[in-house]
Computed example of a mutant assay.
Amino acid sequence: MAGLEGTEQPRQRGGTAAVRWSPVAEGEPALKSFDLFGNPALGEVRLPSRPQSAVAARRLTQAVVLCQWGLSAQLTEHAVLLVSELVGNAVRHTGARFFGLRMLRRRGWLRMEVRDPSRGLPCLMPVHEMDTSGRGLFLVDKLSDRWGVDLLARGKTTWFEMRVADR
């Protein structure tokens, strides 16, 4: 994608610089993620359950939603954020060594799935303004059109879907 630049943009928060991710960019690193992990739009890719995998998941999401499917930057930004939240939950709360990431597109919808071996269900908690954690599923609930959890024989798949305008 021409004209793409880096996505990590400093943002001031309480006198310290924080990093804010933006999907409008990072085209090459995003596409290189396919080489490292595979294309989650073609089948589930397996990622190690560690915090650094959130970066890989964001790049894979951007590569699929923006670069491969050609959807809007705003939709991409929301999808990237929500995938990052689901991945964060899988890394923090499941005790798994690996998790799976899969992306599906059908007429009018996109669906993102994170599969892990834990059968523990995620919990949508009330969020208060000063909370420093626990906002992940709240964001998934607010920014997606629908979300849920499918229990499997060994583990679960947590997913969300977003409406997309087909051209």
Rank of each mutant, 00 (worst) to 15 (best):
L75Y: 01
V65N: 00
R59M: 13
Q74F: 03
M130C: 14
Q74V: 06
H128W: 14
V83N: 02
M130A: 15
N89D: 13
R106Q: 08
Q68T: 08
F98N: 07
G108K: 07
P40A: 13
S84F: 01
D150Y: 03
D145M: 02
E77W: 06
A63Y: 01
Q74K: 05
L121T: 11
R111Y: 02
V91N: 03
A153I: 05
R59N: 13
D141P: 11
A96P: 03
A90G: 11
G100D: 09
D145W: 02
T132P: 05
L60M: 10
C67L: 11
Q68L: 08
R105E: 08
E44R: 09
L110D: 00
W109R: 09
E113L: 10
L71M: 07
R105V: 06
P126G: 14
W109V: 04
W109Y: 10
W109M: 08
V140P: 00
E85C: 00
V83K: 01
L81V: 10
W69R: 02
G136D: 13
E113I: 04
L42G: 09
M112G: 01
D145I: 00
A57S: 07
L86Q: 03
V149Y: 03
S144M: 03
G70A: 05
D145N: 08
V65E: 02
S72M: 03
S118P: 04
